[in-house]
Design a protein around this nucleic acid. Structure first.
Lengths: 360, 360
DNA sequence: CACTTTCGTTGGATCGATTCAAATTTTGGC
DNA sequence: GCCAAAATTTGAATCGATCCAACGAAAGTG
């Protein structure tokens, strides 16, 4: 006797159960995709055969090829995948993107790439209908790679002035000016900037030359905005220390050490991300430097956590939810056009900023 | 003249460029997948043709069918997709899962299902090699559906005693006992429990009958652990209010209102999740009830945030990273076996628990 | 009863690649 | 210049479904 029916390890295919039930594969397919057009008796027979043979249902791999549409959008970054769950900005953005996807029954595929080779492969082989790119850093390479897929995609940052790529971002110059004006208006004159990267893998104090050579225009624009506004208030921006961080604890701490080692430490810090700003608040608290009594801080991004930290962070809020919604919509309702949108930011004044200490 | 070459809208296929370059599609395929085995001259010719025709590279949809392996693992929940980015437990777990996936170049597909119909479809059509299921709530249905796909999967919770499903979880009874013993040992005798759901869609004060009928055994086990240990200390568990929350603000607030409306409010709260515990801490702070002076709280889960809130939360820590790592590994190295693992929890004592107030 | 509809079913074509045994071309040795 | 071995290239088969034109059977019509 032994085993007499079907092959042992090989998974059961639609064709197998069609044969077993004595119908054509076309009919078998209909049983699953449009059961109402199949006569009940036949339908039951096919279902019974499927059950008996342990059929797992139509394999999406097969369907996909025919259908053409994956029904998933890829979200890509050059950071490790955990970025999506760790970084507060990414999280807020993902929450908005996923809400939109949820509403339309679209799936989300997370794509990352630590190193060059894997990046390429992961982008090339992602099963998605389009991409949303987080291109805070190392964006250009990501964009090139994605361009090759010839799928709809949108960059979350207006980084490069490339008119082949759709993008959604904020007016960084205007936002930075809001922050600077707020602090200068409160009376501050001694500033320091906790910056994001200007180019790949750079950190540390920044020279004007490096600013000129900035690859990441988002960073450059924010700095430009800060400086423009500070100049109006008579601040000599050449003497404002700009420390480039990697938006993490280690590099931000290093920056603060450097900045506060100065003979004339700042009374106000302009941070280019809320994350850096919040790290700075903790660093200062640990050293008994009171915020905002001794030092004021203004962040950038407007992540939800910024409202909850202590003291609550004054920040330039991006419309994160709106950006996420639009990005997802742009992929879902892709119409073949390239568009670049700039949304407005808003200064949210909270407890981390106040007048400078009355002067020693 | 007009347009004479290729179809206009239709995307370019491998076969198209093979024809254009005058080679077989087999060779064209090799140019992309194993370039080293095709003669340089031919390779260049094919690449040139691809370039000229705007070929996007081998379509993963096609490859997939042949290759069989998607190289992605699906993570599913019955909550909305944003759960993965909002809930601290989910986030910590995802960070660990994604680190493992990153290391192996595996993608992650997020799958969710608000309503029944979509749930089914999303699970059935997910392009993945296996699933990791977050089945905190509504798990059984999710498991049934996933079972039908006949793909490897693992449940993150030992919820059901179903030996068809692999699972990784913690010893809930032991963990709950640690929490209860800690508080009782400090001298507390008046307790309240902020519980998770015992069954679908239930909230509110729980009767012993409901506990008996618990569908979610994780919740039931934690409560059993609490009560076992409290009994040893002579606490009449029948009088301990157990309030079922949905692990969110609204229901937790409601629970606290109820619990503290009592004539003899508790001096100690056993919360079945850190999230609930942290929400409780905020609620109490807003009412000037000092933690731990007036009320002690012990959470459950050991999420990273618990160490950062104020006061830092005493909690029963699950080895979240380890669970995530093992879950991902179980899918990646699937060997056809079903296994259920129970990991140990650990009581982490922080600032939210202390002796009860010296009695009025 | 012949004739049109309607309903279900069939089976070939297709989606876009990869694979592999067989055919062909090159290369190397003498 | 001939033959075996090595290097390339070919083209049919396959992956697992869905789609659709065509066809047969049952139902409806005058």
């Amino acid at each position: 006797m032994a085993s007499l029916t079907e092959g042992n390890t090989r998974p059961v295919r639609l064709a197998d159960i069609a044969k077993a039930a004595g119908v054509s594969h076309g009919t078998a397919s209909n049983v699953f995709s449009r059961p109402e057009i199949v006569r009940e008796e036949v339908r039951e027979r096919v279902k019974a055969a499927a059950e008996a043979m342990g059929y797992a249902g139509p394999d999406p791999k097969g369907r996909l090829l025919r259908a053409g549409k994956v029904n998933a959008i890829g979200v890509a970054t050059t950071d490790p995948l955990s970025y999506f769950f760790d970084d507060p900005y990414a999280r807020a953005m993902m929450a908005s993107i996923s809400a939109t996807c949820d509403a339309t029954g679209t799936g989300i595929a997370l794509v990352s790439a630590g190193n060059e080779e894997k990046l390429a492969w992961n982008i090339q082989s992602a099963l998605v209908d389009g991409f949303i790119l987080f291109c805070i850093e190392g964006g250009s390479r990501l964009v090139e790679l994605t361009l090759e897929r010839k799928l709809p995609f949108v960059a979350l940052e207006l980084g490069f002035e490339d008119d082949r790529v759709s993008a959604i971002g904020v007016d960084n110059v205007a936002g930075a000016r809001l922050a600077a004006r707020h602090l200068a208006g409160l009376g501050h004159r001694r500033f320091a900037v906790l910056s994001l990267a200007f180019a790949d893998d750079s950190t540390g104090l920044v020279s004007p030359g490096q600013v000129q050579a900035a690859v990441y225009t988002g960073t450059r624009d924010r700095l430009a905005g800060y400086f423009e506004e500070l100049s109006r208030f008579g601040v000599d921006t050449a003497r404002v220390p700009v420390y480039e961080t990697e938006n993490d604890e280690a590099s931000t701490w290093a920056g603060l050490e450097t900045i506060f080692a100065s003979a004339e430490p700042p009374t106000a810090i302009l941070a280019m991300s809320d994350r850096t700003a919040m790290i700075a608040i903790e660093w200062l608290a640990a050293r008994d430097i009171a915020v905002p009594r001794d030092v004021s801080i203004v962040g950038f991004d407007g992540v939800p956590d910024a409202a909850l930290c202590d003291p609550a962070l004054t920040t330039v809020a991006q419309p994160i939810a709106e950006i996420g919604r639009r990005a997802a919509r742009r992929i879902l309702d892709f119409d073949g056009t390239v568009r670049r949108e700039t949304l407005d930011v808003e200064l949210v004044v909270r407890a981390s900023s106040g007048p400078p200490p009355t002067r020693a």
